[in-house]
Design a protein around this nucleic acid. Structure first.
Length: 930
DNA sequence: TAAGTCACG
DNA sequence: GACGTACGTGACTTAT
């Protein structure tokens, strides 16, 4: 595992556990407890474990630790004994029942994954002081878990003490109450008052009260000693004069050292999750039943991730660079013998559409991997360079392709890739249709969607405890980045072969888990087929009208300039309209408008809804800003960016779909995102007009009507809804009619709109607040609507309760294809966090099932089009919509084929209890087809 | 790199 | 009754 660290910043919160102090306190405060099997005293250990668990698991928000350490005393001899031999001399030896618990508590700290720190010659308090001050200097918060008065001198506005037994934080007030002075004078009071427990002498006859009075009058103890002559009470004066040296020594004794030469730097104290197996083993060994159960539940609730496998370490030196035909033949025969092979391609650019193959890596076993360079050039290629480095020795591209094609297309040989969609696209451009294949990214996605990311580096870290060589280590970064064809073969081999090696290791780990986790169906019937289908769509791309976009861009620019001038005029000064910060200062500062919402960082909210409100109150500037923002968004994100995205080679725009980004199983679209092309406003729809078909062709858009509500009806099994869909009713009107008891005929559009908002709200895991916001009505009214809804559709409430219950028990929810969506935080103590998880749990089966269905349709589509003898191709997916391009003449046939495939997407394997309905239309641009 | 905003289903 | 919220995404801009 990598030694992960985290720098200390203002947002950090360091917890320092005064472990040695805790032991004594717990021993006396808690009832004695012995281990059932052998009577070993373990009371303090149990208290300690409970405390750590509570601190690490249950604290949220600001109080949540980001850095954490347990600090121990080491030995009994410290530098203070050199100052004063009697320091702590009269302490009785620790109780017999406590002695065996010291080492156990150290073990406990380690089992919890926290550093257990100590240092010869210093007390725990000195280490705590040193760490606390260092963190304070960086602006971090510090919590010292202790109630030891000796630590009170450290309290500041950043540093507090936490007494976990009384669950009380000690800050200025408490310190003042105890010592009669602030934290900065605690040392002075202590050096006068002394301490009988620690055997600090102080000044005889002077207690805390007197000391505080003196210090408050004289400032500090050293000044007091200097001016001792001025003291009026003769006895007190004499005491101070006689014992000045002793008081000075006392001062040194009570002053905590803030400059201990610590060994573990602050940033290494980063909080990390305990290793479940280690922790549970320790707790079980202690025979602590309750906390063992709690810990186990927590880890199991988070979904038991397989432990990182204990496998052979990655050895880059075992990788082979294949540059001869003999070597290549040897690898091919090895693959045929194994029956499977991990494959990875390296190219000279990131996009699969136009990049060239540079090399191929293969792996058939752990540490058994090779790299076959086919397109490497000299390191200085393309530069004016007089050094005589030559193009490296390598096999010709054609030779390698010809040799590998039969293997890659062999139905008996399984090809294994990570994010294989990319490699499929590359190979397809060299005439190879790779099949069959497995994709480790998708295996991971089926097993663990919602738990973590599924990129190779993260998976390798998580499951193999190995950090692969970073791409930027090989190719550099930023301006000096080179393309992979210029990497020297040695380096390229280590990097590329490692990718194949890691992919194979992940496959060996994940593949058997599919059945165990019961996600074989969603993998085999859905995910596995997608890379091939989607890689084809990506390669197709879509045509956009560059000139139209360019004209729009100019038009937007001009009008933006108008709004900008207007805004500056209204504001009375120039400012950057794109800066929410500056805008907030002008609206709510200069102009003194009433600010509504705040953002989570405390800044005034200037989003559209806030500006709308101000505009409605009769202010002009907000409206101007809204207008400017609309145009600015359209210009930069669409009109300009889409032109940039036109591929030089194909003249079309090729998005990239991410198959494992959305936890519900939806696809997402990037570079550019073609799933958020404007449609809701007139102005925005112009952008959609620029998505066009080739001459003689049309675009066809086919979208599922109300698919999520239909799925809600099916999944929650609501007869009224199912019947409404079977009867082809307007579902929102029907909902309104049921709720408010009015006829559908002649319904007020506003009433229907409210019902529509409620229907959407249901799918999102409704809340009164959310609904009131959406409809602009008071929360109470929203609450009444929801109540009315649930009275009319009690089955929906039952579905929601059952789903939450299921999620709480299993930590995941499922779609109709058995896709698991893991939900984190469903058991959180924090209500907001828990509610969020509950809404996710309610939404995920619906959104996820819809995603499953359209994916099934997409998988069936190419075959259906071909069977129907159609030339049309599938270009885009937008969650419930598919976009095709086809010759004008075949539009009608294509529409009926597409509609059939989409409406019957679940059959015959799965029969829904509601009909799926697809609307489809053809036009020469996307706006009109939709 | 984070925060704020806004485009979509 | 108080929490602080509608579910799921990605891109662009400003500010640090």
């Amino acid at each position: 595992m990598t030694q992960d660290t985290a720098p200390i910043t203002e947002d950090s919160h360091l917890y320092l556990i005064d472990a040695s102090g805790y032991i004594f306190r717990a021993f006396h405060a808690l009832p004695p407890l012995t281990r059932p099997s052998d009577g070993l005293p373990v009371g303090a250990v149990q208290g300690f474990c409970n405390m750590l668990w509570k601190l690490l698991e249950e604290l949220k928000g600001d109080d949540r630790p980001t850095h954490f350490a347990c600090i121990f005393d080491k030995g009994s001899y410290t530098f203070r004994n050199d100052l004063y031999p009697d320091y702590k001399a009269q302490r009785p030896p620790p109780p017999e029942d406590l002695v065996p618990q010291f080492p156990l508590i150290r073990q406990a700290a380690i089992a919890f994954g926290t550093p257990a720190l100590e240092m010869e010659g210093y007390e725990a308090d000195d280490l705590i002081a040193t760490y606390a001050r260092q963190a304070e200097e960086k602006g971090a918060r510090v919590t010292i878990v202790s109630s030891d008065k000796d630590l009170m001198q450290l309290v500041s506005d950043k540093i507090t003490l936490l007494d976990t037994m009384k669950n009380k934080r000690l800050s200025f007030e408490e310190v003042e109450a105890k010592f009669g002075v602030g934290p900065d004078k605690v040392i002075d009071v202590q050096s006068l008052a002394g301490d009988s427990v620690d055997n600090v002498p102080g000044a005889p006859g002077i207690g805390v009260k007197t000391a505080a009075t003196l210090i408050n009058e004289y400032g500090d103890v050293l000044s007091l000693l200097e001016r001792a002559e001025e003291i009026k009470q003769p006895k007190r004066r004499q005491t101070l004069i006689d014992h000045a040296d002793q008081i000075r020594v006392s001062r040194d004794l009570v002053t905590l050292k803030c400059d201990v030469p610590i060994e573990a730097p602050l940033e290494t104290l980063k909080v990390r999750d305990p290793d479940p197996a280690t922790l549970i083993e320790f707790l079980e060994g202690m025979e602590f039943r309750t906390i063992t159960r709690r810990v186990r539940e927590t880890f199991e609730a988070e979904g038991d991730l397989p432990d990182p496998v204990e496998s052979e370490g990655v050895d880059h030196d075992q990788y082979e660079t294949v540059t001869t035909e003999a070597q290549l033949a040897e690898w091919i025969s090895r693959i045929r013998k194994t029956g499977y092979v991990a494959v990875d391609t390296e190219t000279d650019a990131l996009d699969a559409v136009s990049s060239n193959l540079v090399g191929i890596s293969l792996s058939t076993n752990v540490n058994e991997a090779c790299y076959i360079p086919v397109g490497h050039v000299s390191v200085s290629e393309g530069e004016l360079n007089l050094s005589n480095d030559e193009k490296p020795e390598q096999l010709g591209l054609d030779k390698v392709i010809t040799a590998l094609k039969p293997v890659l297309e062999d139905a008996e040989i399984l090809k294994i890739g990570q994010n294989f969609k990319y490699d499929l696209a590359v190979f397809s451009r060299y005439g190879i249709t790779v099949a069959p294949y497995d994709d480790t990214m998708l295996l991971s996605f089926c097993l663990h969607a919602g738990m973590h990311g599924h990129g190779m580096d993260e998976l390798s870290e998580r499951f193999l405890s190995h950090t692969p060589i970073a791409f930027k280590e090989v190719c550099g970064t930023g301006k000096s980045q080179i393309s992979f064809d210029r990497v020297e073969l040695d380096k390229a081999t280590r990097y590329a072969a490692e990718d194949a090696d890691v992919t194979l290791r992940l496959w060996k780990l994940f593949k058997p888990l599919l059945a165990k986790q019961k996600v074989t169906r969603v993998y085999e019937r859905i995910e596995r087929a997608l890379p091939a289908v989607i890689s084809r769509m990506e390669l197709e791309g879509v045509k956009v009208d560059r000139d139209a976009l360019s004209r729009m861009s100019s038009d937007f620019s001009q009008r933006m300039a108008g709004y900008e001038a207007e805004a500056h005029e209204l504001a009375g000064k120039d400012f950057n309209l794109g800066s929410p910060k500056q805008l907030g200062e002008i609206l709510f500062g200069d102009m003194g408008l009433p600010g509504g919402k705040k953002t989570k960082t405390g800044a005034w909210s200037t989003d559209a809804s806030a500006l709308e409100e101000l505009a409605a109150a009769g202010h002009d500037l907000p409206r101007t800003i809204i207008n400017w923002r609309t145009l600015s968004k359209l210009k930069s994100t669409y009109a300009d960016a889409l032109q940039e995205a036109i591929n030089k080679k194909t003249g079309r725009v090729h998005t990239s779909y991410s198959l494992s980004a959305a936890q519900t199983g939806r696809l997402s679209s990037t570079d550019p995102n073609l799933q958020n092309i404007p449609i809701r406003t007139e102005e925005g729809r112009k952008i959609r007009n620029a998505f066009i078909a080739e001459p003689g062709n049309v675009l066809v858009s086919a979208d599922y009507s109300q698919i999520e509500l239909r799925l809600l009806a099916h999944i929650a099994d609501i007869d009224a809804l199912k019947n409404a869909f079977r009867d082809g009713l307007d579902i929102h009107a029907m909902t309104a009619s049921e709720m408010f008891g009015m006829p559908i005929e002649g319904m007020d559009p506003m009433v229907r709109r409210q019902a529509k908002a409620i229907n959407f709200g249901i799918i999102y895991g409704i809340s009164a607040y959310g609904l009131s916001n959406q409809l602009g009505i008071p929360q109470g009214e929203a609450r009444d609507y929801i109540k009315a809804y649930f009275e009319k559709f009690p089955g929906i409430r039952k579905y929601m309760d059952d789903t939450k219950e299921f999620a709480k028990e299993h930590a995941f929810v499922q779609t109709i294809y058995g896709r698991k969506c893991w939900v984190q935080g469903i058991k959180a103590k924090n209500a907001a966090q828990r509610s969020f998880a509950e809404r996710q749990a309610i939404n995920a089966p619906i959104q996820g099932s819809a995603a499953d269905i359209i994916k099934r349709a997409m998988i069936n589509m190419p075959g259906a089009l071909e069977e129907a003898g159609l030339k049309g191709r599938m270009l885009l997916q937008v969650h419930d919509e598919l976009i095709f391009e086809c010759p004008e003449a075949e539009a009608d046939t294509l529409i009926s084929t597409v509609r059939r495939v989409m409406e019957k997407a679940t059959e015959p394997a799965l029969q829904l209890s509601v009909p799926l309905v697809v609307d489809a239309r053809a036009a020469d641009n996307w706006a009109d087809a939709h």
